[in-house]
Amino acid sequence: MTTTAIERIASTLVAVIAIAVLFFLMVPLLVAVPLSFNAEPYFSYPMPGLSLRWYQEIFGSTVKGIEWRNAFFNSVVIGVSASILATVLGTSASLGIARGDLPFKQSLQAMMLSPLVIPVVVYATGAVYFFARVSLIGTYPGLIVAHALLGTPFVMITVTASLAGYDRNLTRAGLSLGASPWRVFRKVSLPLIGPGVASGALFAFVTSWDEIIVTLFLAYPNQQTIPRRLWAGVNEQLSPVVIAASTLLFLVTLCLLVVTEVLRRRNARLAGTL
């Protein structure tokens, strides 16, 4: 029959395009990552030899190495602090919204999610003026606050999603069994929405970990982060050190992605038993 032939051709075509698109998604990483092991400072294949010299530059005791490690340290401190702040605030707000009796719920929710859709440059520019007025510009608290703001919508989305799968009768059951509201929250609610909270926290961390625009606007020159060094590296002269640092950055996010995937599966498994 002709229709099945057409169908077969169509699905083959879909498969071919799909694999090509998948290749397109993966190719920059697959191609660029090996270049960080190139013995020569060129970006071409075949590579003349393999070496770890670019990584040595990052981990070495030279001035550059110290700078990279400082940037790494800054990124971790800012990212972890911003993530904690965003997670606490975002989780609490999601719990409040889920209770369903919040006045002005729609507007408040829209406001708290707005960092997701406002172009970052617009926020960064506004923040420069405001943060300068309140003496937060060029400070770590200032960067942490701004990064946390960009991360809170992700926390709200993931926590709200896990609350949607949460049976409120479980809270009632806990209370009817004589446990105080706080005990019920700790022993019943939190373990069940925990994976959602954790992946929200990871999202918030990665948001800060990768953030460049707000950092460029708000940070003083001595406040280097990994993305900021990469930005400078790309803008000035593309060197294999930048590729090596990118690879490291990529590995960190890859690990975090695996962690969230594990959390997501765990969450799905628990939800499946509800």
């Binding site: 660029a32 460049i212 930048v242 990118s246 990529f250």
Partner: peptide, 8 residues
């Protein structure tokens, strides 16, 4: 990171 991908 967008920076990493753009670099690539």
């Amino acid at each position: 990171s967008i920076l990493v991908r753009t670099t690539a």
